[in-house]
Amino acid sequence: MSFVYHIIENRRRYFLFSAVLLGLGLAAMIASLVSTGSPLRVGVDFRSGTRFEVQFEEAVDEGAIRDVFADFGLTSPSIIALRGTGLENAWQIRGEFVAPETAQDILSALGEVAPLRPGTSQVTSVSASVGNEVTRAAIIAVIFSAIVVLFYIVIVFRQVPNTFRYGTTAVIALVHDLLLVLGFGAIAGLVLGWEVDALFLTAVLTVAGFSLQDTIVLFDRMRENIARRPFEKIDRIANRSIVETIHRSLVTQLNAMFVLVAILLFGGVSIRPFIATLFIGLLAGTYSSIFIAVPLLVTWEERILARARTA
């Protein structure tokens, strides 16, 4: 037998590896909570604030930009120089929420520092109520997806004994992936200063879909093999199912990951956090489907059988 055929037998290593990654992410979220007041460094999309994106015709010093905002009472804005093709002398400034009239006055004041390139200035403002609504909608979307998948698996896998365990382990794998993505977001916020915005939410929901798809494909193959080999042990069925589907899963995910790596290396800086989050999420989804969801299901089944024998 090949190494791949012994995946289930090595499940404790995978569980330990995931525990370490989750622990690092949890530690980063705690550190972020202490330093920023939030488990993740949230952007304007999730809290009240105003974001300015401007591009000057000539080079401008960060201190000059900060002085302009200080004149309007904004003493601690987040100022980031944007890098990429066509982004010469481009800046992104995030600060407290200001009225639209004040935002236009700030743009005019920035234009006095140096001429602004026409058609490049953008101002995005989000009130506290809108930020709370976006956060609430994101949480509801993830919970709703988990419930739908749970019921879907219970209905589709109704011919397999204990279908609820399949749905439960799929949801656990989903939570595992989302926690890894959140941990990555916390680490990136602490190390790179990346903020969580609407694109981050898009990446999280995309990861949820890919993760559940991979897990359902594996469980469906297990369902077929259980029907074909009703007397074979669950661990052998699980190993066999993984071997039969791993090539398809890896090819599908690797194609997407190669594209993401290319965009990450050669794309603009503004979408880099989104692409990096999506890449980590897809990687986690592929890993959890094979090394977390199925081994966890086998462990659950074996413990139930062991208790039945000793009863």
Score class of each variant (00 low, 15 high):
L283M: 12
R12D: 02
G63V: 14
I237C: 05
R11G: 01
D214T: 13
L174P: 00
A28Y: 04
D105R: 14
I246R: 03
A114D: 13
S2K: 05
L82P: 00
I143A: 10
P77Q: 01
F184S: 05
Y152S: 05
Q213D: 12
A103Q: 08
G268T: 08
S270Y: 15
P295S: 01
T50A: 02
D105F: 06
G183N: 06
Y152P: 00
F56P: 00
R240P: 12
R303Q: 06
S211P: 06
A109E: 05
A238P: 05
T120S: 10
E301A: 10
S270C: 12
V196G: 01
L82R: 05
G267V: 00
I226A: 07
A203H: 02
T163S: 15
A99R: 14
A227E: 14
G193E: 04
Q159R: 11
M257G: 15
A308E: 13
V269W: 08
G267Y: 00
V191W: 12
V148E: 01
A186V: 09
A308G: 11
S76N: 10
L192H: 11
E62T: 13
I226S: 05
G131D: 04
G95M: 03
I275T: 12
R272M: 03
L282P: 03
H247T: 15
T50G: 04
I271Q: 07
V191C: 13
V134R: 01
V44Y: 00
V269Y: 07
L110W: 06
F200Q: 00
L82F: 03
